[in-house]
Computed example of a mutant assay.
Amino acid sequence: MKLYGALASPYVARAIMLARIKGIDLPLEPAPGGSTHSPEYLAMSPIGKMPVLEADGRFLPESEVICEFLEETGGGKPGLPSDPHERATSRLIARIVDLYVAPQPRKFFQQMNPATRDQEEVDKAAAELDKAFGFLEFFMGAGPFCVGAEPTLGDCAAIPYVVLIQKSVFAAFPELPDPTQGDGRLGTWWKAVQSNDICRESAEEYAEVVENFMKAMRERLKG
């Protein structure tokens, strides 16, 4: 098996992290043709998004589907809890990330330039982000991870987006509170993430990618 994409994508990071947790060797390859819109890439998936998994000569797009495939076929350590309610909760956390957390950073990116910033739009975006984090806290299990004592699919979905928001939104808008640094449920969850070698190292790896992206964005704003 191999995964096509770039670690800059939080969805690629999700699949890679789950593979590491399960102990699966999943090489990451760049998009054939140099782009997700190249003829070579579109021949694998006309959706034109990353990642795409190649397994047994067949191709699967969409990170959530890829993660479920790895869970069902990859063996190794479980990436989902054995209890059906906890399995559903782990999947729910991933779903909340995709539907409610993932759309938020883009709203702040549009307000990165202080010279053209609309504070009313920033305030609206901050309220939506706070609501999305509230959904995560409400549905997370007893923990310390999103469900139970070990990282699962939900953690693999949440970690890249939390890192993205930490390194972009909270770095550019320091007046906004970061719930992962508090005493609430997201705070205890983040401590668990930092205590797990695979989760911490994956988060640090992704943080470096985001920091490089933000540095390039700041340079463009200066220009």
Rank of each mutant, 00 (worst) to 15 (best):
residue 2 K to I: 14
residue 2 K to L: 11
residue 4 Y to P: 06
residue 4 Y to S: 14
residue 4 Y to K: 09
residue 4 Y to G: 10
residue 10 P to C: 15
residue 10 P to N: 15
residue 12 V to I: 06
residue 13 A to G: 08
residue 15 A to N: 11
residue 18 L to C: 10
residue 18 L to G: 06
residue 20 R to F: 10
residue 27 P to V: 11
residue 27 P to L: 14
residue 28 L to H: 08
residue 28 L to Q: 14
residue 33 G to I: 15
residue 34 G to E: 15
residue 34 G to P: 08
residue 35 S to F: 13
residue 39 P to H: 11
residue 39 P to C: 10
residue 39 P to A: 11
residue 39 P to T: 09
residue 40 E to D: 03
residue 41 Y to I: 00
residue 41 Y to L: 14
residue 46 P to V: 08
residue 46 P to E: 04
residue 47 I to L: 11
residue 49 K to D: 14
residue 49 K to V: 03
residue 50 M to Q: 15
residue 50 M to W: 03
residue 54 E to C: 12
residue 55 A to L: 00
residue 57 G to W: 01
residue 65 V to P: 12
residue 66 I to E: 06
residue 69 F to S: 04
residue 69 F to E: 13
residue 70 L to E: 09
residue 72 E to K: 04
residue 73 T to K: 08
residue 73 T to V: 08
residue 74 G to S: 10
residue 74 G to Y: 05
residue 76 G to W: 04
residue 77 K to D: 00
residue 78 P to L: 09
residue 82 S to K: 15
residue 87 R to E: 08
residue 87 R to N: 12
residue 88 A to F: 12
residue 88 A to S: 09
residue 89 T to S: 14
residue 90 S to W: 00
residue 90 S to P: 04
residue 93 I to T: 02
residue 94 A to Q: 01
residue 96 I to E: 03
residue 96 I to K: 04
residue 96 I to A: 09
residue 99 L to R: 14
residue 100 Y to M: 05
residue 102 A to W: 11
residue 103 P to D: 06
residue 104 Q to G: 06
residue 106 R to N: 13
residue 106 R to W: 07
residue 109 F to Q: 01
residue 109 F to K: 02
residue 109 F to V: 08
residue 115 A to S: 11
residue 115 A to Y: 07
residue 117 R to F: 00
residue 118 D to R: 12
residue 118 D to E: 13
residue 124 K to D: 12
residue 124 K to S: 11
residue 126 A to Y: 12
residue 126 A to M: 11
residue 130 D to Y: 02
residue 133 F to K: 00
residue 134 G to T: 03
residue 134 G to H: 07
residue 137 E to G: 11
residue 138 F to S: 08
residue 139 F to N: 07
residue 140 M to Q: 02
residue 141 G to A: 11
residue 146 C to K: 03
residue 148 G to D: 05
residue 150 E to Y: 04
residue 151 P to L: 12
residue 152 T to Y: 15
residue 154 G to E: 02
residue 155 D to E: 03
residue 156 C to K: 01
residue 156 C to V: 05
residue 157 A to G: 00
residue 157 A to T: 00
residue 159 I to S: 04
residue 159 I to Q: 04
residue 160 P to A: 05
residue 164 L to A: 04
residue 164 L to I: 12
residue 164 L to E: 05
residue 165 I to Y: 01
residue 175 E to G: 11
residue 177 P to A: 09
residue 178 D to A: 08
residue 180 T to E: 02
residue 181 Q to Y: 13
residue 183 D to V: 11
residue 185 R to L: 05
residue 186 L to N: 08
residue 189 W to N: 01
residue 193 V to W: 10
residue 194 Q to M: 07
residue 199 C to Y: 01
residue 203 A to I: 06
residue 205 E to T: 15
residue 208 E to I: 05
residue 209 V to I: 15
residue 209 V to D: 07
residue 211 E to W: 10
residue 211 E to F: 03
residue 213 F to M: 13
residue 214 M to T: 10
residue 214 M to K: 04
residue 214 M to P: 12
residue 216 A to E: 07
residue 216 A to P: 06
residue 217 M to G: 01
residue 217 M to N: 01
residue 217 M to W: 07
residue 217 M to A: 14
residue 219 E to W: 00
residue 222 K to N: 13
